[in-house]
Write a protein that binds this DNA or RNA. Structure first.
Lengths: 211, 211
DNA sequence: TCTGTTTTTTACCATTTGGTCAAGGCACGA
DNA sequence: TCGTGCCTTGACCAAATGGTAAAAAACAGA
């Protein structure tokens, strides 16, 4: 067995293997994000993927392997905006770009957001290593970057760590708590309002005036 | 069977009944908040409560009834701060008090926060009615209150609905994503930092200067 | 077409889990 | 002391669920 959660050797995957693995992972994203790990069943995933359960177990070593593979595959996508933070624009614009990118991800990738939210909520039992090895260094690096901007007075004095977490909280909330939002606020122009709102929240925070 | 999720008549509960129901609900809060509804088992709840599984089913009609009873019992506690919003202080102080109360709840009641987060994340299958009948009217009322403050220039112009949701997002994030926070930021003085941070985030937003 | 390999399915299995039942304690008033 | 009614439990059950085995089917190369 290979190390990436597949029952097949990773080398030289055929067209059909690639296609079926993708279909399984997409179906699994549907089911895991909607019901959490324990709440999801292989039968649900199989049905969503249009395959039989044993066939799914032909491509993956088991339920847990699918979940781990999914988290691993999506981790990079998920943290890509943070990785890009500060690569191009000047500080204030860079942070606003990051915030917009995160909000856009909540809009276009709510399943991914909920997948990670479920995992973290329940203590990150299968993602602890990923967090430690991939997110932590990146997080520390960007916090240092932000602290640099603060110390050179390019942005207002903010707590870098908590500021980043606040960005996550606000933007991901739109995906993770969608069920609640749907019952509380009207759907029309929802995302345009959200966008204006986060601008109104974060942009003034960054102005180096109230130092 | 009674309507509140108990297998016993609600009238005239004995001392021991009250005590055991409380013990069961507390154990259930532990387990449901940590694993979600599907992830929790009656055996886990029974062990945590120090009772046998059939005994638990003597007090409640089933797993789902426990969950519903729990949500119902905690709903009022959970929305109490919102209910109190604007009852005493002037607008800006009232909102800051609310924010502080919510942050304090994340610190002292993380289990409750995660219980609700789990439920909402998975589409609020068992809480839809509660949301609609209890939270929605209160939410609308407080939004109107905030809009009034905005229109009379007592606070800065903000989107009332999204502002409240942002408060929830930021404060509850500290409880719901604790596992992630623990791996990313140092634990010492954590809550003091969080408190200073939310002050720095929200207080400037309310100053009616940038109109 | 023949042959070996990959893919898919049918039939099954073992465990977990929500829930039931009938019998056994246990407190308390008569 | 004896019932009587509330409380508790051991034994059990049926369904759901993760997973397996082996054979059938599809496919690729010669």
């Amino acid at each position: 067995m290979a190390a990436d959660g597949t029952a097949l050797p990773a080398k030289g995957r055929s067209r059909i293997q690639e296609r079926n693995r993708t279909r399984i992972l997409d179906a699994a994203l549907d089911v895991f994000s909607a019901h959490g790990f324990r709440g999801a069943t292989l039968d649900q995933i199989a049905e969503r993927a249009g395959m039989s359960k044993p066939n799914i177990l032909y491509y993956f070593d088991g339920k847990e392997a699918i979940h781990v593979a999914l988290l691993g595959a999506l981790m990079e996508t998920w943290i890509a905006p943070l990785r890009a933070l500060g690569q191009t624009a000047e500080p204030k614009a860079a942070l606003m770009d990051y915030i917009h990118a995160k909000l856009e991800m909540s809009r276009t990738m709510p399943r991914e957001s909920r997948l990670f939210a479920n995992e973290i909520l329940q203590g990150a039992p299968r993602m602890g290593p990923h967090l430690e090895s991939e997110l932590k260094p990146l997080f520390d690096e960007k916090c240092a970057l932000i602290r640099g901007w603060v110390s050179t007075r390019r942005i207002a004095p903010i707590d870098a760590e908590h500021f980043l977490m606040t960005i996550w909280a606000v933007t991901q909330h739109y995906a993770d708590f969608e069920a609640q939002i749907d019952t509380l606020v009207p759907r029309d122009a929802h995302w345009a309002r959200a966008r204006r709102h986060v601008d109104a929240v974060f942009a003034p925070m960054l102005e180096p005036g109230a130092d």
